[in-house]
């Protein structure tokens, strides 16, 4: 899970490997704040799978690649 200068840099880095998913850094930031924002809360509880899947879905991260186990 890395940051790259551009999609072209991702393609070179992959060197023929099957690509995963590439998203804008602004989307990543929104994802991170939704996913990790409560991590240090004194009353923290584990996220359910459904909760996390909804976070992904709300950002348009849908489809088989983003399907949690």
């Amino acid at each position: 899970m890395n940051l790259f200068r551009s999609e072209e840099h991702v393609e070179v880095w992959l060197a023929g490997r099957e690509p995963g998913a590439t998203i804008a850094v602004a989307t990543l930031a929104r994802l991170a704040f939704a996913w990790w924002g409560d991590r240090l809360a004194p009353d923290w509880q584990p996220h359910t799978r459904e909760h996390n899947q909804a976070i992904l879905g709300d950002l348009g991260l849908t489809g088989p690649f983003w399907a949690l186990p």
Binding site: M1, W13, P19, G20, T22, I23, A26, R30, F65, A67
Partner: peptide
């Protein structure tokens, strides 16, 4: 690469994030 995060937003939008492994794995 240096990115500032201010009020939850990145300071630049030219970068991309690549996730190699599917969520199921």
């Amino acid at each position: 690469l240096t990115i500032d995060v201010r009020d939850g937003a990145p300071s630049r939008e030219d970068l991309v994030f690549h996730c190699l492994v599917a969520a199921a794995h």
